[in-house]
Structure formats: C-alpha cells, structure tokens
Amino acid sequence: MAFLQVDHLKVNYGLIQAIKDVSFSVEQGEIVSLIGANGAGKTTIMHALCNLIPKQSGQICFDGQDITSLAAHKLVPMGIAQVPEGRRIFQELTVVENLQLGGYTRRDKKEIAETLDSVYQRFPILKQRAKQVAGTLSGGEQQMLAMSRALMSHPKLLLLDEPSMGLSPLYVSTIFDMIHQVNQEGTTILLVEQNAKKALAISNRAYVLEVGRIVKTGTGKDLLADDSIRQAYLGG
C-alpha cells in the first residue's frame, strides 16, 4: 500500500457533490500535485484528508494505518502537517509563538529548539521578526511562517494548499525552492496548486482535477508536455 492512499473519497456540501469518487496515492519521498481550476475541489480534498469537514464516504490510509475518521489534531503526532489555504497563521500571536504552536504536539524541548534553529537558518527573516506580531508580516513572509510552522512538527507528510496564492513572483520562487528542498530532506509532499506550471515542474506525479473528479494523471513532466493540459492550465 502507498504511503498515503485515498480511496473513493466523496464529499458533499449540502446537496452538492463537491468530490465525486476520488482516489489517489502518494508514495514515500514523492512530491505529488493536485492541479485544477478554481472550484475543482482541491481544497475540499485537503480539508477532508484532515477531517476538518465530514466525508460522505471513502477510505484514507497513511503509513499503513486507517486515518479515515481520525480527528484532525491526532494526525499531527502521526506525522501529517498541513499548511492551509490562505496561510491562516495566528495573526495576533508573535512569529515565535506561531512556530511554537507548530511544535505543539512535541514534548522534547531540545529537539524543538533544534528544529526552530533549522527554521531560522532557512529563513533568517523569521528570526529577525521573532517577537513581532505575525499579522504585521508581509504576505510572502506569512507564507514562509506558515510553512515553517508546519515543519516545526517534523512531519513525514506535508500537505500544502495553494502555497503560492497571492504572492509576488519572487516569493513564489522562494516557496517552490523551499518545497523542493524540504522534499530533498526526506519529507513527502502533497501539493495543491493553481500555478500548474510551477507545480508540475517540481512534481514526481500529478493528478488533474475537474469539478470533483480526477480526469488525468501522469508524471509532472508528461503532464507539462500534454497538449490539453497546456491549453487548459498553462496558458497555451
């Protein structure tokens, strides 16, 4: 069985079927992308994975364990961290408090301090602004904080929901570099993106989502070269 295995996932919003029988998998060490237009159901899948919204049906297994109905907070100690859409950092808390909350489920103070050091090394700006209220950071800095906060739990699987949304091109590159780097260091990544070009370029594999269904799958490279994908998502 795959590292993350999602089978026959269905999610309803009232009478509307937002996710209609979606199955996909992520192998250990991979970067896998879900790409698709606005409203295709990408974020819904991310929320359903972490049980932030109820599922109609389906099964989700992670690392050999059935996590289908496990409460969101129990997934973090198992090794799943999510960077939610829109970052959702704690605006009223300081940068360092946000990072500490990322490591909330870890108890070993020494290890937490080591992870914090590595975060600061990656993004020295976060160290400079450690005592600053997080709401005062720029959008790009907030995204770095959100990613770093997720890494504080030392995840085996990192779920990234639209990490490049609303960022300047410079920060988009920074974020994608970071995703690549984190993956190189051994973290498996499931990435949801509207920026299909960038996402496919760093992905091992990808799934294309259209109104709640997976319509195409393949390696990042193949999909980048696919004519219909180019037309629909990559601007011709």
Partner: peptide, 19 residues
Amino acid sequence: KAMLAVSEDRGAAQLMGVN
C-alpha cells in the same frame, strides 16, 4: 497559547495538533 490560537482560528489550531 493554544487557547489564544483556538480563539483566533479553530481549524488552524487543530492542524497544529491542538485538541
């Protein structure tokens, strides 16, 4: 701090592992 986090954004706090 977990209380402040839940107060500001319950869903995000859950994603941090806060019960």
